[in-house]
Amino acid sequence: MHPIWIIAKRELGSFFDSLIAYIMLVLFLGFSGFFTWLLGSDVFFVGQASLESFFNVSYWTLFFFIPALTMRLLAEEKKTGTIELLLTKAVTDRQLVVGKFLSTFLLILIALLFTFSYVITISSIGDIDTGEVVCGYVGLLFMSAMYISIGLYASSITSNQIVAFLCALLIELFFHIIFGTLAQQLSGWAGALLHGLSLTNHFESIIRGVLDTRDVIYFISITLVGLLLSELSLTKRHTV
C-alpha cells in the first residue's frame, strides 16, 4: 500500500473516531438542507428545480468548516511529537502532506455524496439542468481542495490548532471576499490581478455551468501552491 493512502486512511479513521466527521456531516447537511429546502431563497421560494441555493449555502459552510477540519492535521502532530515518528518512517514530507490533504478531501467528498439525495429529490419535482449540477459539484470540490491546501499550510506553520484555524480563515477571507471587493475599487492591472485572484468570480463562473480552463487552472494552481508551501514548511526543519 502506498504511504499516501496509508496516511490518508489513518487520518480519515481518526476523523470518524474523534466524532469530528459526524459533527461536520450533521452540521453541513443540516445547514445546507435547511437553506435549500426551508429558509431564504429555498427551492420552493424560487420555484425552480435548481440546486443553486444549495451551492450558495455550501460555498459559505465549507468556508468555515474546512479550516476547522484542517487545523489539527499537522499542528497536532507537531505538538504531540508524532510528526517525528511519521517522518522517520519510510514516508517523505510530500507523501505526508498529500496523505493529509487526501484524507480531508475524502471527508468533504463523503459529505457531498450525502447531498445527492437533494439532486434526486429536486429532479423528481421538475426538470433539472444536469450540466449545471455537475459543474456545481465540481466547483465545490475545487473550492474545497483549494481551502484544504490553505488550511494544511496554516496547520504546518504552527503547533497551536487555534492559531492554525484563524490563520487559515484569514487567508481564505482574502480569496473569498477581500480580493473581490478590492478588485471592484481598483482599476488597471491591480484590479485585473485581484479580480483574477478572487475565488468568487471563478466559483460563480463554474456553478453557472461553464467549466472554463482558466477557472480550472486557478483552483489547481492555488491548491498546488498550498501543498508546496506546506511541504516547504515541513522541510524547513532540515535547515534551521
Binding site: R10, S14, D17, S18, T80, G81, T82, E84, L85, T88, K89, A90, V91
Partner: peptide
C-alpha cells in the same frame, strides 16, 4: 535508508486515540 532504521524518539510520541 529509513526502512532499515527503527526509532524510539525521546518522550515516546504515540497516537493516543488508536
Amino acid at each position: 535508508l529509513k526502512r532499515h532504521i527503527g526509532y524510539l524518539p525521546e518522550n515516546n510520541p504515540l497516537y493516543l486515540d488508536m
